[in-house]
Design a protein around this nucleic acid. Structure first.
Lengths: 263, 263
DNA sequence: AGAGAAAAACTCACTCCGAGAAGAACTGGA
DNA sequence: TCCAGTTCTTCTCGGAGTGAGTTTTTCTCT
C-alpha cells in the first residue's frame, strides 16, 4: 500500500503512452443500427445499399463512424446513442416515439480489411416508418422483411460484413424481450387496441396467438396498458365491435411474463 | 442502380478518409471485466486499486486497452472476448470453467479526460476463485462483496469512473438471467448439489428461497441438471442425508422460468 | 439408541394457462 | 328492417404450475 504511486506497472505505462495517442495503432469505432418496424403484420428491418468501396453495392445496416471530437464533418457525438440516432437520421425520418437499445459490440480482427474497427450495434424499434426514398446520403435504402434475409430466406438481400449475424441477434433480442417487458408498445403509435398489440406479438414471434387468452393476460399484467376510456371510430373492415383504445402503461418489466410456449 | 459506383456520397468519403486513419481524432477501446464469484454465500466482484494516474489509488474494474495490432506490448487480441480474458488473467488466475458475456459499451464524451475512450464491459461468472495475491500487474486487487459497493452500502469501496454503474448493470443482468436461463451453474464447480444451486440463487437474489419448492422446480425444468447417480461423500456438518450430485445439463433457456416473485 | 439435521418426497389450496364457447357490438347486404 | 358475417370481449373448465407446510428418508453426533 505504501508505494502504490511509485510502481510503474502496466496500467501506468498504458496511461503514459496514451498521452501520445497516435503512437498506438489506429482504431475506429462505428455504430450500426438495426431499425425495426412492422407494416401490415410484417416485421421489417432497414437496409442501405453500400455506395462505397468495401462490399460496394451490397446491402448493409445503416451506420457510420462515431464522431469523437468536433471536426469539419460536424460536432462530436456526446454519447453512443446520439451517434446511432444521427446515422439513422441520415437515412430515414425519425419517428417521434422510439425505443433505442444497445445490442452489443463486435470487434473481431478481420471484420474490416482497412483497420481495426469496433462496431457498436443498436436496435431501434419504431411504429411504421415512411419509406426512405428521401435518403439523401445513400445510394439506396429499403425496408426489408426479416424472412427475405440470409437466414433461411430467399436470400434476395444478403447483408455485407457480419451484419446478418447482428440482425439475427437483434431479432432474437426483440423476441425475448417481448416476453418479459412491455417493449411491444414501441412498435405501436401512442394509442392502440389490444388486437394491434397482439398483431405485434404475432409478427415478431411469427406465430398466431389465442386472441381471448392474450386479451386476458394483457389486462391482468399491471401497468402494461392504460385504458383511455374511448373506442375506435370503426371496427374491422368487414364489421365487428368497436375495440377499446389503450395507451402504453410505462411498465418496463412484465409480471407475470407472456411466455411463448411450444406450439 | 446504374451509377452506384460513381457517387461520392458520405459513405465513400468516410471510406477514403479512413485510408489515412491518423487524420481522425484518436480514439481508444478498452475492456473492463466485472468478474463475479460466490464465496460462502456471499457474491463478490473483483476490484483492483488503480496504480496509475487518473483516479490513482481508487478501486476500479480490471481492464485495459484492446490490442488492435501486434506490437511491442504483445500480439493483437483476435476478438473482444480474448482481450477480456487477457486483462483478467493479469489480475487473477482464470478458472477452468467460466461464463463470459458482453454487458455493453460505454462511450460518453467526458468519461476520460485524456481522449475519447470507449469501454466494452464484460461480465464473467466463475466458481470460487483464489485470492489475487499473486497479481503481478497491479498495486492491489481484492474480491469485494456487492453490498460494500457504492449502491447503498458502507461505501468502503467507491469505484472510479462510471464503474459503479457498470457493476450495477452486471448485477441486475445476472439476477435477471438466473430467472430464465441455467446461468447459475456458472457459479458452481462441474459437480454440485441442488442445495449448492439454491444457495447461488439465494446469494445473487439476496433472498431466501423455499428449499422444497426449489428442488421440485429444478428437477421439473428439462435439461437444467443431469443426475450423476452418485451421492456426496458426506451430508452437512451436523449430520443429514447425503445429497445427490448433479452436473449442468447444458440447457440455455429455462422452461418454465424460475421467477423471483415479490417477497 | 436417540436427538438433531439435511435432503427429498408429498399434500393441499390457490393461481395461472390453454382451449373453446358464448355474449356483445358493429357492418353490409338482402 | 332483419339477418348473416365479423370482430371484440367475457366466461367456463380442466390441467398444469406455485407457495407453504408437512412427512419421510438417511445421515452425523452424542
Amino acid at each position: 500500500m505504501v508505494d502504490d504511486g511509485m510502481r510503474r506497472d502496466a496500467a501506468e505505462r498504458e496511461f503514459l503512452a496514451a498521452y501520445d495517442p497516435h503512437a498506438y495503432a489506429p482504431v475506429a469505432v462505428t455504430v450500426d443500427v438495426v431499425a425495426m418496424t412492422i407494416r401490415a403484420g410484417e416485421p421489417l428491418v432497414l437496409l442501405v445499399r453500400r455506395g462505397a468501396s468495401p462490399q460496394q453495392g451490397r446491402w448493409a445496416l445503416p451506420g457510420g463512424f462515431v464522431r469523437a471530437e468536433d471536426g469539419p464533418a460536424g460536432p462530436a457525438d456526446p454519447d453512443l446513442p446520439d451517434a446511432a440516432l444521427r446515422v439513422l437520421a441520415e437515412k430515414t425520418a425519425l419517428p417521434t416515439t422510439l425505443h433505442l437499445e444497445q445490442l452489443g459490440t463486435y470487434g473481431a480482427r478481420d471484420r474490416d480489411p482497412r483497420m481495426r474497427v469496433f462496431s457498436v450495434a443498436y436496435m431501434l424499434l419504431a411504429p411504421d416508418l415512411p419509406d426512405p426514398e428521401q435518403g439523401r446520403d445513400t445510394a439506396e435504402a429499403a425496408w426489408v422483411p426479416w424472412r427475405d434475409l440470409g437466414h433461411g430466406g430467399t436470400a434476395r438481400y444478403e447483408p455485407a460484413f457480419d451484419h446478418t449475424r447482428i440482425i439475427a441477434d437483434a431479432v432474437e433480442r426483440a423476441r425475448a424481450k417481448l416476453e418479459y417487458t412491455s417493449l411491444a408498445t414501441a412498435f405501436l403509435p401512442p394509442v392502440f387496441t389490444i388486437t394491434d398489440l397482439r398483431e405485434v406479438y404475432e409478427a415478431v414471434w411469427g406465430r398466431p396467438l389465442h386472441a381471448a387468452n392474450f386479451h386476458r393476460k394483457i389486462l391482468a399484467a399491471p401497468g402494461f396498458v392504460r385504458d383511455t376510456g374511448e373506442l375506435a371510430d370503426r371496427g374491422g373492415a368487414g364489421g365487428g365491435r368497436r375495440p377499446r383504445l389503450y395507451r402504453a402503461g410505462g411498465t418496463a418489466a412484465l409480471h407475470p411474463p407472456l411466455l411463448r410456449s411450444a406450439p
